[in-house]
Write a protein that binds this DNA or RNA. Structure first.
Length: 198
DNA sequence: CTCACGATTGGA
DNA sequence: CCAATCGTGAGC
């Protein structure tokens, strides 16, 4: 077990540089009772300062404050009043920038996933809202650092065995936006079943 | 204080 | 195609 945990300072770079590098890495969710759910990151999107689609484009507010915080911390927000979206803050303090984690390929199906959804294992975390549901991530996790803790926590690990070219990725435009739709800051693993849309 | 809206999703 | 559902923030 030599899972290499990604240190928070690794995220102190532009989001558009980090987003593609996160493909193939593993997001780990650790619970209070010791249970762990792991998910391969298969789809990401970058948001940065000066980008009209970025939540921090206009100014810092209570909702997006963590986006202006330290790299390697989380920015979690509620969308459409019913789903949460998970972002990893990037770049430097006061520079609103983050990578939205859009889909994961889970290593196991959590107990709380309803029977109906178990029929499509690859779809359980294929979308930013579904991903947070599956990993039980909500606003209470906004602002926390990506660091293993004795109590509940979340972190990311590099791939175990780096096999060059084994993970072919695709770069395209982001989804569900009304502004910045032309910016090609979405990446996903080619042909992966858990990608939200292709 | 009011109100339109959203980096989504599931169902008609 | 459309409704669900509600915290947020802009505007009065």
């Amino acid at each position: 077990m030599s899972h290499l945990i990604i240190p928070t300072h690794w995220f102190s770079r532009p989001a558009a540089e980090i987003a593609p590098e996160l493909l193939g890495c593993t997001l780990v969710r650790h619970f209070e009772d010791g249970q762990r759910i792991r998910g391969l990151i298969v789809e990401t999107e970058a948001y940065a300062a000066g980008d009209p689609a970025c939540h921090g484009y206009r100014k810092k507010t209570p909702r997006n404050a963590s986006m202006f915080g330290s790299a390697g911390h989380l920015y979690v927000y509620l969308i459409y009043g019913m789903y949460y979206c998970l972002n990893i803050v990037t770049d430097h303090v006061d520079v609103p920038s983050a990578v939205l984690i859009r889909a994961l390929a889970l290593d196991q199906i959590p107990d709380w996933i309803p029977a109906k959804k178990r029929a499509q294992p690859h779809r359980i975390a294929s979308g930013p809202g579904l991903l947070c549901q599956a990993m039980r991530i909500d606003r209470s996790h906004d602002g926390i650092p990506l660091i293993p803790q004795a109590h509940e926590s979340i972190w990311v690990e590099f791939p175990d065995h780096q096999q060059p070219n084994s993970l072919e990725s695709v770069q395209t435009t982001r989804i569900g936006l009304k502004q910045g739709t032309e910016i090609p800051w979405r990446w996903y693993l080619k042909d992966h079943r858990s990608v939200s849309r292709w």
